[in-house]
Design a protein around this nucleic acid. Sequence first.
DNA 1: AAAACCATGTAATTGGTTACATGATTGG
DNA 2: CCAATCATGTAACCAATTACATGGTTTT
Lengths: 186, 186
Amino acid sequence: VARGSKSQWAILGVLTIKPSSGYDIKKYAEEVLGHFWKESYGNLYPVLKRMLEAGLVTSTTHRQPGKPDRIEYAITAQGEAAFQRWLAQPAEPEKIRSDLLLKLFFGRQLPPEVIRDHLERYQKQQQEIMHIFEAVERELDDLPPDPNLPYWMLTLRRGLLLTEARLKWADESLAALSSRTERIEE
Amino acid sequence: VARGSKSQWAILGVLTIKPSSGYDIKKYAEEVLGHFWKESYGNLYPVLKRMLEAGLVTSTTHRQPGKPDRIEYAITAQGEAAFQRWLAQPAEPEKIRSDLLLKLFFGRQLPPEVIRDHLERYQKQQQEIMHIFEAVERELDDLPPDPNLPYWMLTLRRGLLLTEARLKWADESLAALSSRTERIEE
DNA sequence: AAAACCATGTAATTGGTTACATGATTGG
DNA sequence: CCAATCATGTAACCAATTACATGGTTTT
């Protein structure tokens, strides 16, 4: 039954909250899991089909005149068991491949202004992300008590702390860059 | 000429330092770029061949009796130009997909001990990584002056700051978990 | 004697992205 | 009236991993 599509687990996770269509799942992934998980339709729909065949989910089709059918998926007992097993297993380390770091590592071959551009662009991106996190934090604080809340907070906190660290790094890197180029221009 | 194999740029980068065999490049990637870049032989060798055809690199074969031939690649003027162009272009945002965060997000469905395991495993990993960074930092400090040094420091600092943040997160998450489970057992 | 290093490659598979195709409904 | 939302899917492509295949040399 098992086979390693990561997407599978994200999908099952969403379905433990409530039955959803492919569209719903994508939306949930974007809005809620967005800062540590991405899904694309081109992968989502085929994976859902395979999961259906594997008995991890069931589907019910709702006719909607004019619109395409809405296919709602729900997790099965088998799916729940599989999800539980996966949850308990050690997480795989993330694979890292950073375009930006690669460029900076070879940065000597680049004029300082371009390095500055790279860093400032990154800084701006991280600032935006930070604003989103802060907004989400306020939302969660205003939420009615929910047993899931502590776990959502966990992932949110990680986002906040990492983004903070990235901003700190960008700041200090820009500062270091300035002091170096000034010295050269003297 | 261009085409989007990320590996390509890492390879060209290494070759700007000195001509190398596939084996050398892999080693360099592991030892030096390791914390933000991974390469596998299964990708490296085919990509090198394509780059040869595209004129980005040249190759010279050294016969070694008994051993397989050693094929050394060097960057061409064309390769250098292409690398420069790539360096100056905005970096692509990293794609994020965190197994661990996904598990924690749905953590309510898991007994607290298992969550604790996840976090402690992560903590241990990050501690090890931290030790490596600290060792590298000392190495770089002892290095004879090199114009590349500031840029290497840049990437190292990022590793340090991010790992620090991850450790902080793990600590505070474990603490939060303890206080919650204690309350339940009272 | 075993482990680690040097050295290159192929084949199978996966896991996923992007672009394409279609089109009604709702909200500003 | 335009943009966004709802809604599903396929085809082409691709990058990259893993496992397999081979085998001598150096270090512990």
